[in-house]
Nucleic acid binder design. Structure first.
Length: 187
DNA sequence: TGCACGATGAAC
DNA sequence: TTCATCGTGCAC
């Protein structure tokens, strides 16, 4: 349940991915599976702006894999990368915009075992795989919640990681992280 | 039907 | 810097 009304509403995601990427910092990613709750504080994100953004998967058009990205906001876009790691995004803006925010690192809060620095490790530690693809993030069992104890943070902007193939888009400052946080995947 | 290549992570 | 490992997307 969500007695405190802490689950972020769909309207939160129905906005510019840059805003969503910045505002997700400090919030909690929560997943309940098999009676076990896992939660972590989001400390690093990347924004993918849509089909015009050559670093975004949606730049290749609407395909079976990117279908979720083209769908309504507030859903999880999870895919397998390098044949062995999973990456999780939250879909942003209205249906058809195909923008999203990649979750790159978490600060462990509850039920987290392994490391959470980096998108692949984040998914592994949370137990997120392709079975989560397309899931509605207003679900009490899988959502992002407001911070329990909001604090002042300083946001650092950097180029996105691993998208050198995207030409000038690789230089855009679309990666965000909480300054000084020890769980950042890299500076 | 085949093939090159990742929004990564770990080892050397 | 190299490599593991396999689903996607696109060229034949």
């Amino acid at each position: 349940m969500d007695p405190a009304g802490s689950i972020l509403p769909r309207a939160f995601y129905d906005r510019d991915p840059v805003l969503v990427a910045r505002e997700l910092l400090g919030k909690q990613l929560v997943l309940v599976a098999g009676g076990v709750e896992r939660a972590g504080r989001i400390v690093e994100t990347e924004a993918y702006l849509g089909p015009h953004d050559l670093a975004a998967h949606s730049a290749r058009g609407r395909t079976a894999r990117t279908e979720v990205m083209f769908g309504p906001p507030g859903h999880a876009y999870v895919y397998l990368i390098y044949g062995m790691h999973h990456c999780m995004n939250v879909v942003t803006q209205s249906e058809g915009q195909a923008s999203a925010v990649l979750l790159r690192a978490l600060e462990p809060l509850r039920g987290i075992g392994g490391h959470t620095r980096g998108p692949g490790l984040l998914c592994k530690a949370m137990g997120i795989d392709r079975a989560c693809n397309g899931r509605d993030l207003t679900d009490p069992a899988f959502h992002v919640a407001h911070s329990e104890a909001p604090e002042r943070i300083v946001i650092v902007r950097r180029p996105r990681i691993g998208v050198d193939y995207a030409g000038h888009w690789a230089k855009r400052l679309l990666r965000f992280y909480i300054r000084g946080n020890p769980y950042i995947s890299r500076e």
